[in-house]
Design a protein around this nucleic acid. Structure first.
Lengths: 246, 246
DNA sequence: ATAACTTACTTGTTTAAACAAGTCAATTAG
DNA sequence: CTAATTGACTTGTTTAAACAAGTAAGTTAT
């Protein structure tokens, strides 16, 4: 039997939509677990798992003996935001902006000592080195330097890379991207940055370093995304204590 | 009966330590759930919850039908990193650096229209406005602008604020900080920034905007932490989860 | 009147069991 | 020899139940 969607995700989506639409007033309690159990015809664990996701999203807050409080605060979508694993195109589409990608360089190299230390690939690993420029509404705003394991995507071409790399990996190769480690730093702009991106008064770039792992636990991508500072925005929600299972 | 520590957190800590120490080789599988159940004398759910935390940390990766793969990659602790709810002092102590905090300004105000829009406090809310400078190893590196709800901490003084604000709130007032929404941006340095922080060649600041909520769901703090770009580093681990929207 | 104690909720943690589903190697049928 | 099947694993999802523990309001005893 094939499940259309996992039950806890369905409940999660419904509750999330209600919180976003204001159906549950901000600052007040959501219905209790028992109430939700009867509404959704499910077990307590399933309701709790859905609520756990909302907690992780920063939508609600639980308090033992009291209930689940709505702390949703709508955020402005003025600029390019990130916070989940999302490709440039996905984010642009979600925020209703027009995006294009062009490949400026596409070479094959092997990881030397320095690159291996920087990226975490073993020395000697055959890699594609890819430079891409992302335009948002016609203006170049991101300079992307990627190193990709050749053995994970042997047929990669510049044409494919100019499209959606993640769509190619997931849909064409059936690769499943599972986790991704990111580091955000601010670095001085280089001549390479300025060759493509008009920084105006700024002399820095917002740099997102991304290491992506597939379902086999192999790191197949190391990307440095160098963002125009004015357009960069990262949003995050932190929870003090861990919540539910997986 | 009072639990010393939750069982799944104990197991989580043990497994985490083993992964960090290399007891479980990188790229290989951890013991199966059944093996861990017999080792820790617990139920499958408890083991799974512990593993779920490791997944969230980016330490391991699970794959149905296969097992739990160790993808741990030690990171360099060269600079001031963040990624969980951690005060400046906590982070400095963890990374073995010497930190001091001094208060440059301490005033009482009410949220006007503009500030209410910026921070999310209701118009007219009585607030403490607090300017602090954080030094790391004797050099000023963070300029902190905080707005704090007066009704949540009526006895706050500059002396207290120059110590650990979070320690005061948690230990003295018994307040429980639960969630915290953060936004990271890069902004041009202001005269106020330059008055205290030596930016050298840089003309930008890494800005972390933080909104903290207590266990009653009340936002009691809005803080803008303006970091020296050279010392700023944010680390994050993202797990991709197929969430379908309805 | 006030302090202490019930009581009826609420969420938090753990166990147990059943079934679904992915993976891989050994076995079997052609 | 090759392809399909089986079986013995693995993790993923859901339900059910029991008990712990925090909260708030009502009740009782002083």
């Amino acid at each position: 039997m094939v499940l259309a969607a996992q039950k806890f995700l369905q409940i999660y989506s419904v509750l999330k939509a209600r919180v976003e639409s204001g159906e549950y007033p901000v600052g007040q309690l959501l219905p209790s677990e028992n109430t939700l159990i009867t509404e959704f015809h499910c077990s307590r664990n399933t309701v709790r798992r859905a609520i756990g996701e909302l907690v992780r999203d920063g939508y609600v807050q639980t308090r033992q003996g009291w209930g689940v409080c709505n702390i949703f605060h709508p955020i402005e979508q003025t600029s390019y935001t990130m916070g989940t694993i999302e490709s440039f195109r996905e984010t642009a589409r979600r925020t209703g902006q027009k995006s294009t990608t062009r490949v400026e360089s596409f070479t094959r190299i092997q990881a030397d000592q320095a690159l291996a230390h920087q990226t975490g690939f073993p020395v000697g690993t055959p890699l594609f080195c890819l430079w891409r420029i992302h335009d948002l509404n016609g203006r170049p705003i991101i300079f992307n330097i990627s190193y990709l394991r050749e053995d994970c995507m042997p047929r990669l071409t510049p044409e494919i890379a100019s499209g959606s790399l993640y769509r190619y990996l997931e849909e064409e190769l059936g690769m499943v991207i599972v986790t991704s480690k990111r580091t955000i730093t601010v670095e001085p702009a280089t001549d390479l940055d300025r060759r493509w991106i008009d920084l105006g008064q700024y002399n820095c770039m917002a740099v997102v370093t991304n290491q992506a792992y597939n379902s086999q636990g192999v790191m197949f991508e190391y990307t440095q995304s160098r963002h125009h500072p004015a357009i960069f925005r990262f949003q995050d929600n932190a929870v003090r204590r861990p919540v539910q299972d997986l």
